[in-house]
Computed example of a mutant assay.
Amino acid sequence: MAADFTDGIPLDRIRFNDQGLVPAIAQDYLDGTVLMMAWMNRESLAKTLATGEGWYWSRSRQELWHKGATSGHLQRLKSIRYDCDSDAILMAIEQVGDVACHTGERSCFHQIGEGKQAPGANTLSELYDVICDRRDHPNPESYTCKLFAGGDNKILKKIGEEAAEVVMACKDDDPDQIAGEAADLLYHTLVAIAHHNVPLRDVLRKLHERRR
């Protein structure tokens, strides 16, 4: 059964523009990546709230647009809010198929300069992408690549060492040292996750479940 968000936004509070539209930004609910921006009118916003799926207004076709109805790339609403001026919508969504753009890219915001580059999400996700790149394109001078070359024995030994250092930093009650040692532990844990080909999104999904 689809979630009902009709109590999430009071429609009468939203300030639609002269064309009766309001910009709506869709953001990945796990890593925060901005996936797309489209327009909503009052009816499409009401349908989004009632069905828990992304509905927009197509300015080119002049009709309601159920995102993913044709491609299968539906957007499942996780949360929705509006800004301080009540004239913009921000949605946290689960993007089915992990493709929001009609070009096949994950995000519509993939262009930079004359080329393409996936937009940054959060620091943890960006670091994991770098680690996976080191795994897939080994460089003998890279510390990360040396960890991968050493396999579980080397990686897990480092995790044990870093975990102990986090404990000692906490016992010393040194905020800067705690932050540094925790960062080292997270980094080496990400290397282990990548070594076992576990998608970071699976970890983020588990963390999201822990919030309940």
Rank of each mutant, 00 (worst) to 15 (best):
130 V>L: 09
130 V>M: 00
130 V>D: 01
130 V>N: 04
130 V>H: 11
130 V>E: 12
130 V>I: 11
131 I>D: 02
131 I>F: 00
131 I>S: 00
132 C>Y: 05
132 C>G: 04
132 C>S: 09
133 D>E: 12
133 D>C: 11
133 D>N: 12
133 D>P: 00
133 D>Y: 00
133 D>S: 12
134 R>G: 03
134 R>L: 06
134 R>S: 04
134 R>M: 11
134 R>E: 10
135 R>F: 14
135 R>G: 06
135 R>D: 00
135 R>V: 06
136 D>H: 08
136 D>I: 07
136 D>A: 02
136 D>Y: 07
137 H>E: 06
137 H>T: 07
137 H>M: 02
138 P>Q: 03
138 P>K: 03
138 P>I: 05
139 N>R: 03
139 N>F: 01
139 N>H: 04
139 N>P: 09
140 P>W: 07
140 P>H: 06
140 P>D: 09
140 P>Y: 02
142 S>K: 01
142 S>Y: 06
142 S>T: 02
143 Y>F: 14
143 Y>Q: 14
143 Y>V: 12
143 Y>E: 14
144 T>L: 12
144 T>M: 10
144 T>Y: 02
144 T>E: 02
145 C>A: 08
145 C>L: 04
145 C>I: 03
145 C>F: 04
145 C>R: 06
146 K>F: 04
146 K>E: 09
146 K>H: 09
146 K>I: 06
147 L>Q: 08
147 L>V: 04
147 L>C: 01
147 L>W: 07
148 F>M: 07
149 A>E: 14
149 A>N: 10
149 A>T: 10
149 A>R: 13
150 G>C: 09
150 G>V: 09
150 G>L: 00
150 G>T: 00
150 G>I: 01
150 G>S: 09
151 G>A: 10
151 G>V: 10
151 G>F: 11
152 D>T: 12
152 D>Q: 14
152 D>Y: 05
152 D>S: 15
153 N>C: 14
153 N>P: 11
154 K>P: 08
154 K>Y: 10
154 K>N: 10
155 I>A: 01
155 I>Q: 00
155 I>W: 01
156 L>T: 14
156 L>V: 14
156 L>M: 15
156 L>Q: 15
158 K>W: 14
158 K>V: 13
159 I>W: 07
159 I>H: 08
161 E>A: 06
161 E>M: 07
161 E>Q: 13
161 E>K: 04
